[in-house]
Design a protein around this nucleic acid. Structure first.
Lengths: 342, 342
DNA sequence: ATCTTTTTCGGAAACGTTTGCGGTGTCGTT
DNA sequence: AACGACACCGCAAACGTTTCCGAAAAAGAT
């Protein structure tokens, strides 16, 4: 019932608690013989070290905190999977919180994780997050922090991102090469760096192709399927549809996709579609969605790795930002204009 | 840099640490006046209680552990989302581990969580898990445990599940009513209770419909898309295909779906398909997949709620198992035999 | 004015570890 | 024979809280 502690073990063996502790940690001051006895006894009595006590004394825990907008989203759960993977290998365990895209909850979450004395923090900010006091305070406390995906650039932390600008640029270039000319963009909120970068890549590609940027074809929204549907709605109300659309992510693309289909708009004959890979569903719709593949799992792995590195670099440490490669997966939804059905 | 503790606060205020602690917890022994002073000072110096120390002294933490086969799977990440939701509301934070479907890692995970002195444990076992010593040991230590989805029935814990038997039964009945007669089953491993129940529901529905159970149409496999593809392969090698298939879950159904399509087999004209809802992709394929909807988010919520309830019921407590309702979402992939295209 | 009650607080131990420091005992060297 | 070196281990403090047990001061009762 009550906990079996190191003291109990010591009593059973007739040695001191310090000896037990040292034996368990393979300290050189302890003879091989007693080490064996201690380990054997620990085994026998199912001794389980109390990590809480250990953390208190060491002033640092063996858990790392993770904050994401929503756990259930495919992209983030994949990232978390990656994080857990390397955390596990390194003997850490992860505490996961979701902000539900609200700043208030994100703040509560960071406080809770700090209160739990996590060794470090991995965060992707919410869409509402335009003030960063909570993150700055984490930094000031000296808690290692690395941002991923949704990062705030002016914060001096390690970051892992994709090259949103180039990815969007390439996606649009692909559309242009495929014969599309009136290319719209289902964008995200302007505040988020990621969204801005994708927009800028989109715009630059238009410019570099000698195409005009049409304000009305830029329709901002959120990250979810319903936002895509709403966006499609906006396009449908226009005199003339764009002939291609770059969506801020897959759910939005899929939402637009189904709304368009309902309206009898053919993909890609009437309008081509390109997304950013948040979901495996993209490959299954008909025609399959052309999409920018984002290495979510790998993003989680590297973010965690960066954090672990920061743990060991005592004292002076310089933030690194690693940019992961994306890949444009060309599929049916952006078939060259006028091409026959596959 | 160094931590600002309750002692520091006490020193600043010229009172004892005990007084500060009591003031912060609104203890009646403390005058309103000093309470105000303490709270104000705590605010001023950004005092953050050390939950680690608190846990050590209280001998119980405010974190709950979660173990799932794989975080990245849509079903489980949705469950986790639900868990986090109610945990958050109750002031708990969750530690999440994945077993990667291996028993070894599941064992390590439970030990790590116990070592971290979680207040309770929420687990869905791996496919490999046929011995339960690690879970029994958790129980013996008196750590509250509730199982969800993949449960081991002989363990005396609260459980939250769906009625797999009935769900499979209804799904097959639906197929029969739609005119299908040679109904196959892409099953999971036999060891898992959940798989067995679905199989039994399937078999009972056949029997009650006066249809013969054909051994060869039962093809066991795993939970992933590739298992579905492999299963389709098996069917394709037969002289005669089944005219409908109940898949153990959506990924498997989707896998079979795409393999069949590659082989020129039409869905549902040549073979109808029904899945168990693990993924949103089911609604997007063409034709859309008929599937048994499982309330994953709700499952997470109730599992966490059950655990929280168990926290307060000191002493005598009787395990409850709650069965969540499913719903058969009838879509194109099981269109009545011979019916025209929508 | 003394005694009892109440209010308000402090001392100290405890939760389970780790670790600096010091203390034995043994052995080899001179 | 004496001394240093070394191997091995125990004491006690510390990590930041909470809480039992009193104790002092204030208030009320007689």
């Amino acid at each position: 019932m009550a906990q079996f502690t190191i003291k109990d073990l010591a009593r059973k063996l007739g040695v001191s608690p310090s000896t037990v502790s040292r034996a368990l940690h393979d300290h050189p001051d302890i003879s091989e013989d007693t080490k064996r006895r201690v380990v054997a006894a620990a085994e026998k009595y199912h001794y389980q070290p109390n990590l809480i006590a250990q953390s208190l004394q060491k002033k640092s825990s063996t858990t790392i905190g993770v904050i994401v907008p929503e756990i259930r989203h495919h992209f983030f759960s994949t990232v978390i999977s990656g994080i857990e993977e390397v955390a596990y290998e390194a003997g850490y365990i992860i505490m996961v919180c979701q902000s539900n895209e609200t700043l208030a909850r994100e703040i509560v979450n960071t406080q809770a994780l700090v209160a739990n004395r996590v060794a470090g923090l991995l965060v992707a900010i919410s869409t509402e997050t335009t003030r960063y006091d909570h993150l700055k305070s984490v930094l000031k406390r000296g808690v290692p922090l690395v941002q991923f995906d949704r990062v705030v650039e002016e914060l001096e932390t390690s970051k892992v991102v994709i090259d949103d600008y180039s990815a969007a640029y390439e996606a649009v270039m692909h559309l242009v090469r495929s014969g599309y000319r009136r290319i719209g963009h289902l964008a995200g909120q302007e505040g988020i760096a990621l969204n801005r970068h994708r927009f800028e890549g989109y715009r630059a590609a238009l410019a570099d192709s000698g195409l005009a940027f049409e304000e009305k074809f830029l329709v901002p929204g959120g990250y979810r399927e319903e936002d895509g549907r709403r966006g499609a709605e906006v396009y449908l109300a226009m005199d003339e549809l764009p002939d291609a659309i770059l969506a801020i992510n897959d759910p939005v693309a899929v939402g637009a996709f189904s709304r368009f289909r309902e309206a009898g708009v053919r993909i890609p004959e009437d309008v081509a579609l390109v997304g950013f890979s948040d979901t495996p569903a993209a490959a299954l719709i008909e025609p399959a969605l052309t999409t920018v593949y984002q290495p979510a799992f790998e993003m989680g792995r590297t973010a965690a790795t960066l954090l672990l590195e920061q743990f060991v670099t005592e004292g002076r440490f310089t933030p690194r930002t690693v940019t992961l490669d994306t890949e444009l997966l060309v599929r049916g939804s952006s078939r060259p204009k006028g091409a026959a059905w596959a």
